[in-house]
Design a binder for these strands. Structure first.
Lengths: 333, 333
DNA sequence: TTGTAAGCGTTATCAA
DNA sequence: TTGATAACGCTTACAA
């Protein structure tokens, strides 16, 4: 562990001035070939790496984009983050990832942290409205913020159209002969659940069909799907189509339906949401929707770069669509 | 988007000197209550956030730990990263996450990037030896590096004991009556695969048993498991125990075994590795091993903090154990 | 308890 | 084509 090498050390070693070293690196003014060679050589031998801090102190742009997310282990979040990386790679920006976890989900502190690092912009990536109490006015903020996966008033947002997803699910099940639809929801407070339910219900009533009263709110997991579907088969034995809020629920529902002695997809059709890995090779492959998560990240990054570049922030909402993946749980093979 | 507020603006607004503002914030020397109040008030109204860059320029420690990983969408990686976040949260360090993706997997560039940000240490988190060609001598580096999930000569490493995992798998299958074991591997070049195979084989020969010649190298996926097990049932119908390199392979193997008309776990036992979410609710719940991924991150972060604090770097390897999770694919319910 | 001033490593401006 | 110098925003002796 030794002393850091500065631009002055390099300048001395190469027998030039610090500004020449700087310009050799940044190419903002011509440097003769001979000088350039000596400088680069000195940099190599000394192992010099310019200090980002010192550099950014002089310039107004940091070249860093901050990403704020709650939990990186959520597929939702890490897929979006990966999209952001794609969107940023090869460009002039680096990504500074900050987890809500570090800040006890205190968005204000996390925001200040990013600000203190002089990030040029922030991508705010949420899968749950954990931080909804934070009311930062983006117009008064000196850093542009883009909200990913959740619509925020007064912000540029990139979201998925869950309502249309719900409508599409109804449409698909209808095309597979639907007479008695049912739905098994996720947690009641999740916006995505609400929107999907709303889209599905709308289409159902347009089709002159009816749903059981109970939307089966519950956890996004297998057990909930299993129990809800068991109850459903019991109380509504005529059910022939089940729309599940996500794939875990769908897997549970499928197991319950089979256990009840019914065949899939002949007697009952089940569809999930999210396209989790296991749906493709589940004993009965599960029909589901692929969400454009990486697209959210890519688009968000691209919009943010625009905003930074042009300096104008106009709140808008960009909507992306999910894609139906029909499999054996709804269509005969 | 307005001009950034500096410490001087605050000082003026509060009618004090910049150093007083600084000391109010950092508490390195006493400040009278009255002054403190005025300063904090000024900070609040102006929305002042100190510049990290300027601050770090004066100090030697940046308070940032760099995390270098290839692909955040890999469960492996994001679980470890989450562990790091836990290990760092509440302390004096923030995390600077850098993806190999951004740098075209050029470790040297990524390393320089982190160095230019003056990180105090680096956690190098790999699930595949993508960057093995990079031979940075950690003793000559001025930044301490810790290798997570892969042993590196001359580095402090935190790894999982895959060999013992393999031995444990053999032990468990043996305790469930094993007469004719078999193995279905993952990609041949993965260290984890090699170590697990080696541990398993060792224990098998200690038990005076033999394995089929073919270890079935292949992809870490369902199809490979299905095809390998189909072939295995065909060529080695006496097989009663299959150790699969991961859970996707195990799921495929189970499907193939069932399709061959054999019962699980009565006639054939199958065990996987990784404890993926679906193994818990697979129609036949899959026995598997839970890897202490978050522990790797937590331990790595803690060791790195030690190293930074004490200033001494002594290459060692810290080994963590996987945990067997017995389920219905090996034991009768 | 507080203020003044030097300096961290870089880049922009000006001069040569 | 190059060099000297000031300045970025902050911390920290040193002085008061």
């Amino acid at each position: 562990m030794q002393q850091p090498v500065t631009i002055i050390d390099v300048a001395k070693a190469a027998g030039v001035s610090p500004s020449t070293v700087s310009h050799t690196l940044n190419g903002k003014r011509p440097v003769s070939d001979a000088t350039q060679r000596r400088v680069l050589e000195a940099i190599e031998t000394l192992g010099y790496v310019p200090s980002w801090n010192a550099s950014r102190l002089k310039q107004n742009a940091s070249g860093i984009i901050g990403v704020l997310a709650a939990d990186i282990t959520e597929t939702f979040v890490n897929q979006i983050v990966r999209g952001i990386e794609y969107g940023l790679s090869g460009g002039d920006y680096s990504l500074f990832f900050v987890s809500g976890l570090e800040f006890g989900n205190d968005l204000k502190r996390a925001y200040n942290f990013l600000k203190s690092h002089q990030v040029d912009g922030i991508l705010f990536c949420h899968h749950i409205p954990l931080w909804k109490e934070f009311n930062l006015d983006p117009k008064r903020s000196d850093i542009p913020i883009i909200s990913l996966n959740m619509q925020s008033a007064d912000m540029i947002s990139v979201v998925i159209d869950n309502e249309t997803g719900g409508r599409q699910a109804a449409e698909h099940l209808y095309s597979c002969t639907m007479g008695h639809p049912a739905i098994i929801c996720g947690p009641e407070d999740r916006l995505s659940t609400i929107d999907r339910l709303s889209g599905f219900s709308q289409r159902i009533s347009e089709l002159q069909l009816t749903l059981p009263d109970d939307p089966y709110y519950g956890a996004y997991d297998f057990e909930h799907g299993f129990e809800a579907a068991t109850h459903l088969m019991d109380t509504h034995p005529e059910t022939d189509s089940i729309f599940c809020a996500n794939d875990y629920i769908a897997a549970g529902a499928i197991s319950a339906v089979i256990k009840s002695g019914r065949s899939i997809p002949e007697e009952v059709r089940v569809i999930g949401f999210d396209n989790r890995d296991f749906t493709a090779f589940w004993p009965i492959p599960i029909s589901t929707f692929e969400q454009p998560l990486q697209q959210i990240g890519i688009l968000g990054a691209s919009i943010l770069k625009q905003v930074i570049h042009t300096g104008t922030y106009t709140p808008t909402t960009h909507v992306l669509q999910s894609r139906l993946i029909p499999r054996a749980s709804t269509i005969r093979h």
